[in-house]
Amino acid sequence: MNQADLQGKTHWVWRETLAIHRRAPETRLASSLSTVEIFVALYYGGVLRFNPKDPLDEQRDRCIISKGHGSICMYPILADLGYFSSEELHRVCETGSFLGGIPDPVIPGYETVNGSLGHGLGVAAGIALALKSKGSDRSVFVIVGDGELHEGACWEALMFASHHQLDNLNLIVDNNRISMLGYTDEIVSHGNLNLRLTAFGWDCSEEVDGHDVLAVRTALMQQKDRVTDKPKVLIARTLKGRGVPGLENAPLSHIINPKPELIDELLEKTR
């Protein structure tokens, strides 16, 4: 996909995510707007190998969306790619729909149980170990939030992955610097996260503006291809609630629901 198309797709996913939240306000909007470009880069930027016709195709790269609540933007992406019908997007959180407020692995395209934070990285490390053991050259991607990195189990997995030289494991940190009750720097600061992860034995890519889809794509492509004996991580600087006045980078954005009229107005203005 060329640059203009990628940017256009990003804009479309952002709008679709807003529209889903307009219909299903139970979904976490702010967290899902900080990850839009990450998922667009992964799925449209040629980074991930995947097969909508056979979601568990042995030849796919594994994508573990650990911060599941913040991936509502994946719903339009998966529908667009053919994992399920786009009509499903109009039934999010409705009775009988498989698209809930927090995505579960009943959704074609989702690998694991997500949203209960701190599990995805360990499971991804287990998958990466298994792929190496089986002689597979497929990659594993795992998306976590910086707030999620307060969970101790993440650091158990970080130590494990570097010790076992899981160079097929790619971590993406959606570093929006806000968890539920405010800025992570004021809750329990990660300090210099890049240095911390480097100290834990990870190969850290240069931090990237997580809302520049081209930069994210380039960084992920380079990271995936880089030959090293370490697991790799990309920290993406993002904004929670990106592009929504009153929500963007607001300390309580996790629990703020913008008024429906505001969303309607935004959708109209950004048409």
């Binding site: 690998e111 360990g122 287990g126 998958i127 170990l129 298994a130 130590m159």
Partner: peptide, 18 residues
Amino acid sequence: VGIAEQNLINISAGLALE
């Protein structure tokens, strides 16, 4: 996995998924 039972389970789950 070392003295790390939480990771023990998650690593096991990842291996079992494969």
